[in-house]
Nucleic acid binder design. Sequence first.
DNA 1: TATGAATGAGAATTCATTCAT
DNA 2: CATGAATGAATTCTCATTCAT
Lengths: 206, 206, 206, 206
Amino acid sequence: MSTAPAERPGPDSPPRGGGRDAITAAARESFAERGYHGTSIRDIARRAGLSLSALYYWHPSKQHLLAALVEEITHDYFRRCDLALRETGDDPADRLCALVRVTVEYRVSRRVESNIANLEWRNLEPENRERLAGLRRAATGLWADIISDGVARGAFHDEHPDEARRAIVAACNAIAQWYEPDGEITLPELADRYAGIALRIVDHRG
Amino acid sequence: MSTAPAERPGPDSPPRGGGRDAITAAARESFAERGYHGTSIRDIARRAGLSLSALYYWHPSKQHLLAALVEEITHDYFRRCDLALRETGDDPADRLCALVRVTVEYRVSRRVESNIANLEWRNLEPENRERLAGLRRAATGLWADIISDGVARGAFHDEHPDEARRAIVAACNAIAQWYEPDGEITLPELADRYAGIALRIVDHRG
Amino acid sequence: MSTAPAERPGPDSPPRGGGRDAITAAARESFAERGYHGTSIRDIARRAGLSLSALYYWHPSKQHLLAALVEEITHDYFRRCDLALRETGDDPADRLCALVRVTVEYRVSRRVESNIANLEWRNLEPENRERLAGLRRAATGLWADIISDGVARGAFHDEHPDEARRAIVAACNAIAQWYEPDGEITLPELADRYAGIALRIVDHRG
Amino acid sequence: MSTAPAERPGPDSPPRGGGRDAITAAARESFAERGYHGTSIRDIARRAGLSLSALYYWHPSKQHLLAALVEEITHDYFRRCDLALRETGDDPADRLCALVRVTVEYRVSRRVESNIANLEWRNLEPENRERLAGLRRAATGLWADIISDGVARGAFHDEHPDEARRAIVAACNAIAQWYEPDGEITLPELADRYAGIALRIVDHRG
DNA sequence: TATGAATGAGAATTCATTCAT
DNA sequence: CATGAATGAATTCTCATTCAT
């Protein structure tokens, strides 16, 4: 209810007239390209094809725009993780691979969003940051639980699960920074490779 | 002795001395804390305890300040890598571990600098970015060469050296973002753990 | 169907009557509280529980809203003065007291309106101000006539009737600025006291 | 030697041309003419013959400008009252007349300032208002003490000293709103008339 | 009658930068 | 070496107002 409509009107091209969505899309792209402080609300309005004031009709402030964006992205990512894990059995390796897969897929198919969530977090005002901190911790927990479970069951042999988790997450997150959409490597293939990397990091032994 | 403002920063940043160093230190901290665009030149001057004009005496512009910082950091990091590799034999595993070690150490002991080099790169103006791009590529080359050598020699068995390299580098870089100086883990211990992670990523088999 | 815009729907809409009156009442209160320029048309609409557009349906502009208010207040006050004097004999002291009484009563029972008429006069556009200037002069004339009549008849002995008039009017007008509705003094008592003050100012000798 | 920015103003201000004083003078005139909210900082800057930014070099905000002005005026007025009373004997009638005289003089010779202090008080932010509230109360106290002393000594016979005080003060304050500098009446003469009015209000009997 | 969506002008304030001294 | 004073452009945000529906 709070942000974008449930129905997505399409992946791109803000059509004139869809005020709110055009602004959100423009903000997303601008923040991703130049960062929060590097983006002026004029940039956003221009990109959305609207006036400066229209922006304020839909959003109370630039900060609110960022917060709404980060919130939506964070929820979206978390929901996908949750869903993927629900469809996966309880084998730790399977679960780790599922989480890696969904993350890689998200970083690739939602590059722009991923970079915002990863890089602009620090530009949230404390109030907004705190509101989302719980969700962030929950996402961390998804990884941590799988890894500690794998270690407990003897599937993973890494002795430093925190470092393993951080390394895996950092590697996956970085994808959004270097991935070029027209590269030759396919998404499933990339996901496979990162799943392999993750399994090796936790020292999985079949 | 030249007194011209273009002089190189000789000693290793004593926190507050005379003009130039105070400014550089203040800029470093400010950029790291709030990002380039989130920092005003007044923030820097205030932090340095100097007037705005003093800042312009030493540096022609805010962008120049960033460029100088990024340049220094990039050179410094690269020099350390180079040095470490020179003191290491030609065993790929040894070399990979050496590079991980020096990187982890840098990310921890120069957290602030690491974050600037990693996050503010995109705020360099094209001219400055291009001037440093070669050095960046060279650093990438250090990792790539080691890995491809290891694969060639049969020490590493990973089939996707580019992904392995990116994963290792991303994991190491991320340290600067989460490391807390007063955490209980020691630096050598941390370096060991990341060396292990790296070896597993490239699928090293002793 | 797009989501609600930034501004909250405002759950506590005042139970005011329909459109026009709600707007007038809201404008009256807002102008009194924060002044004409300190009040935005949005403040008024919000207070009236109506949309911005509804406001423009009833009033062509913010300035018109002020002018209408001042006009109504000025007429209302003048009518009361006129009425009171009509019901009073031709004894100057009686007439002066009657005018004081009606003024005090107005300043107390219509505090908000009194302050608007007194303080926001200068924010009328020249056209509106001129339209009401005659009425203002007429009100001044009521006082002046009584006083000069009293002097002529030997009832009042003040030698400076203009200053006397101004002092009496200023004293009465100021009531609207300090009077607290829940104070212990009753309105008739207050009117009596000010009547006494006025008589002393004009140096009335029974 | 000019004062440091954003600090206290010098005692003498009006000479136009030096940044700080020009701004203060321009703000004074603008606020008096159109009120705080009716004045834009552009108006002030234009009037001062300076750029918008110069204004912010000297004053941190528009509100600060108002607060500084009101503070200076209030102090100045109070100081004069205090001084005048110190030079006056302890006869209540003499003291009341002295206070009236100094007030009338202030309202006439500092019309602009008087109107600001009287009309823009409500546009001070709570913090600033509270800081000055004590001084305001002290000024009220000067009047109240004299009147209650006069009543106690049997010099004044008014039975409602609060109303008397308010009426006198309101009458004096209003002068700033109607007085025209080129009117034919001289200042001492005006002061005499108001002293007479005041004595009659308190029902002074020689 | 009313509203939702939009706008251009203008609000206060901050920006990086300059320059005489 | 360093500063105090200033500036024009840009910043975020609010204003009164409009108009199709």
